[in-house]
Amino acid sequence: MKPGEFYQRDRRWHPPALDRDYKTSVTRSPQYAPISLQNSMSEITGPVFGHGDIAPGDNDLILNYAQSGESPIGERIIVHGRVLDENARPVPNTLVEIWQANAGGRYRHKKDTYLAPIDPNFGGCGRVLSDENGYYFFRTVKPGAYPWRNWVNDWRPAHIHVSVFGSGFAQRLITQMYFEGDPLIATCPIVNTIKDKAAIGQLITPLDRNATIPLDAIAYKFDIVLRGRRSTLFENRLEGN
């Protein structure tokens, strides 16, 4: 059997383009239906990354921007998990990139003007390749909640942005992970662009005491699922035979 096309994306599971409660989507959402394509070589292939592309410490946000002998303020956490596909098979050697605010809810970005301070020892980005079992981990500090301009008193729950590639361009995904028990999740207009409660649950990471490092860092587990692929049982017309 040969892997073929990706399974159709479940667009009811993903957020719709337009959600009036997330105001920015109002003028940035296409009004026409997308044209559905059966996968060709353009969709089943995608960029390949290797260890030459990144450095070993890129996944340690506690140290990757800290001055020598210092570290950022905040709750020390491990974020770890596996990248899988919808067939529950690991996705190895795929690039996972993250970015986040610091413990006070401030981003190191020239367009962020929130009054919480920049942390001189925190950049806020990291990247890693999943291993042969699809496993990845980051060390960082827990990001803070922050206010944002949507309705006048909207607050983002603590979250980390996550970007993943997979093996084909059709698997490309950016999402956000949240933390178990955060009361701001329920009222966040961005979280609630996702209409299915079970789908939202897929973004809320549980505290993982088994992976916690005693006297050092608390762990959260975030498994990421990318689109699965068909196996071609009887025919493979994709390549045109």
Partner: peptide
């Protein structure tokens, strides 16, 4: 027993921090 794809969320205004930090300013 298929898993469900992780749902998408917006990249937000600060996507540069993660994917193009030079443009974010560092």
């Amino acid at each position: 027993d298929y898993l469900k794809e992780t749902p998408s969320q917006t990249a937000g205004p600060y996507v540069h921090i993660g994917l193009a930090p030079g443009a974010a300013g560092f």
